[in-house]
């Protein structure tokens, strides 16, 4: 899907940077993201790709840069300069964050239904039956059986926990989702199923997403465009197929060529 020229980007990042003491996290990161687009950020561990995500979500404080986000009401805000209240509200409504480890993104001590319904209740939903109904809907959409709604996430498999995390985030129909290695640590067949699901949801909901992954196959399947990172900087960017089939930068070439062929 290509962007309309006159539509403003959903997310516009310029000069984003973060140092951890003497160590460089990321530097001079910039990109635009349009509604319905998925951006993949790929690179090896230590490339700074997770730092970029953490700066966007506010998990760490960026040293500098601008992250312009176009809200649903049409206003544009610099996310890095929002006060904490506004930022936390954004993360509960228009944005979603899917963590690599489901434990970081779920309440392990409450039922699947409560996990999915929490955002709704936080926003003022006060009808138990309806909250439960929406939770059932979403569990179905992420292919978790209805009969699991009252079970604790501890009893779910890794893939199911990840799907629950996705449901928990998507229930408020966010416009932008940040994902960190969403298929990390899952079996290959489970990964495939999850990727299929994600692709379907992105299309159905017109979601935008920034997906960090070291797995080029995941990038190929989900992302429209890619950023290749190394040593904290972007070394190449472009359409996914272009970057993966015809990489220009020597590092990108190395990365692509080192993928094991089945």
């Amino acid at each position: 899907m290509s962007a309309m020229v006159d539509e403003p980007p959903l997310l516009s990042v310029r000069g984003l940077g973060k140092r951890y003491g003497a160590q460089l996290g990321c530097r001079d990161i910039g990109f635009d993201l349009w509604p319905g687009e998925v951006l993949g950020v790929v690179g090896e561990s230590g490339s700074g790709k997770t730092t970029v995500l953490d700066c966007l979500s506010g998990r760490v404080a960026a040293d500098g840069g601008r992250v312009a986000y176009a809200k649903a009401d049409g206003t544009v805000v610099d996310v890095l300069r929002l006060d904490e209240a506004a930022r936390r509200r954004l993360l509960r409504t228009e944005w979603g964050v899917v963590h690599q480890h489901a434990r970081d993104g779920l309440r392990m001590g409450v039922s699947a239904g409560a996990n999915v319904g929490e955002r709704l209740m936080a926003l003022g939903a006060r009808h138990y039956g309806r909250v439960r109904g929406r939770a059932l809907d979403w569990l179905a959409r992420v292919e978790i059986g209805e009969d699991r709604i009252d079970d604790l996430p501890e009893t779910f498999s890794g893939g199911m926990q990840q799907r629950l995390q996705i449901a928990r985030n998507l229930v408020t129909e966010p416009r932008l989702v940040l994902m960190d290695e969403p298929t990390g640590g899952l079996d290959v067949s489970v990964q495939a199923r999850l990727l299929d699901l994600l692709r379907g949801l992105v299309e159905d909901l017109g979601l935008s997403a920034v997906i960090v992954t070291h797995d080029l196959a995941v990038a190929r399947l989900l992302a429209h465009r890619l950023l290749v990172m190394r040593g904290g900087e972007v070394v190449e960017s472009g359409l996914t197929d272009q970057v993966l089939d015809d990489p220009q930068h020597p590092y990108a070439q190395l990365l692509v060529s080192s993928v094991l062929q089945p």
Binding site: S111, R119, M121, V131
Partner: peptide, 15 residues
């Protein structure tokens, strides 16, 4: 941010 309190009530009703 009181959503978590309603989560508790939801769990009670479920259980």
């Amino acid at each position: 941010e009181y959503g978590v309190m309603y989560v508790r009530l939801y769990e009670d009703i479920t259980r």
